Simulated assay, not measured.
Amino acid sequence: MRTGAAAAHTGYFHEAIRYDSDEHLLAVVLPFLLGGAEAGEPTLVAFGERNAALVRAELPAGAPVTFLTGGQIYARPAGAIRSYRRLLAEHAAAGAGQIRIVGELAPDTFGPTWDWWARYESAVNHAYDEFPLWSMCAYDERITPAAVLDDVDRTHPRTARPGDRHEPNASYREPEDFLLAGRPAPADPIQLARPAVDLLGPSPARARDTIRAAGEDHLSAREIDDLVLAVSEIVTNAHLYGREPIHVRAWTGAGRMVVTVADRGDGPKDAFAGLLPAASDASAGLGLWIAHQVCSHVSLHREPDGFTARLTVGPL
């Protein structure tokens, strides 16, 4: 049975917390957690060290609240979705009528990798909707960039506020609209230099061999293997589902490598490609899902003249 603000809701009840002080955060989080504990619902916290300690200090001794290690969960968006779906399925199978989770992303996700975390925040509205989940995602307005907060409002249907207020976000967009919209490519200074690799119309085999050779002096053997796998998958997708010409470029730096694969097609029609496993092995989404598992960052860009996937391995 659902309780609290989600009592009449079916599926995922997804909220943001935009707070400007520790007191503000606690005023929302503590009633949420204590309400779940009182109702006998699985109640979990996936905060970083500072905010986890803040919440622990205010909870009554012995409160049945589970603290997860947020840094491990939020390593990559696709991995976070996979881990949470497994966790939610276990609780649902055990008979949970509602599951409560409050979490936060680390501040370093607000930089050059924010685009795929924004996609994550949108995609989970679909990915978790089969579960009786009520979750809150906390964002500290004192340190979160304005552009990130704009995306928070666009990806969360509502915002939780002190006093048990749960307000709809007027700028919220359904996942299919948000994920398929064109977004500017986040800048990467490495791309200001001349590319180390510039291939027009390569076969997957030629792309693999060239990227492997270019990365040997910059990446570990494991990183090269991961990047070559991802590039091979994306180039194959471009040949199967995109439109020529297919253009592969790569830039190298100290311990990192950036590869772009561009074609004149529209990109995958599946809004959740990369973040959720493909429904079939014979789909463009499988290659993007693999890339999201092994790369340090994947960004997708739709423009009037084509689609580009950018793969990064190494420090960001």
Rank of each mutant, 00 (worst) to 15 (best):
R2F: 05
A7H: 08
G11T: 05
A16Q: 10
D20W: 09
L26I: 04
L26E: 08
V28R: 00
L30S: 02
G40F: 09
F47I: 07
V55A: 04
V65W: 02
F67Y: 05
L68M: 10
G70L: 00
P77W: 05
R86A: 13
A89H: 15
H91D: 13
Q98Y: 13
T109Q: 06
N125V: 13
Y128I: 07
E130P: 13
E130G: 15
M136T: 07
C137G: 05
P145G: 04
V148T: 12
D150M: 15
R154Q: 14
T155P: 06
P162A: 12
P162H: 10
G163T: 14
D164M: 11
P168D: 03
Y172V: 08
E176P: 03
D177A: 13
D177Q: 13
L180P: 05
P186H: 06
Q191C: 02
R194E: 08
L199S: 13
L199Q: 14
S203C: 10
R212N: 08
A214C: 03
G215Y: 05
V228F: 05
V228C: 07
I234V: 15
T236Y: 04
N237A: 12
E244R: 15
P245V: 11
V248K: 04
A254L: 06
G255C: 09
M257D: 05
M257H: 02
T260L: 01
V261S: 03
V261R: 01
D263T: 08
G265M: 01
K269R: 15
A273K: 05
P277R: 05
A284E: 11
V294N: 07
C295V: 09
V298P: 02
V298F: 06
H301W: 08
P304W: 06
P304H: 09
L311K: 01
L311N: 02
T312C: 07
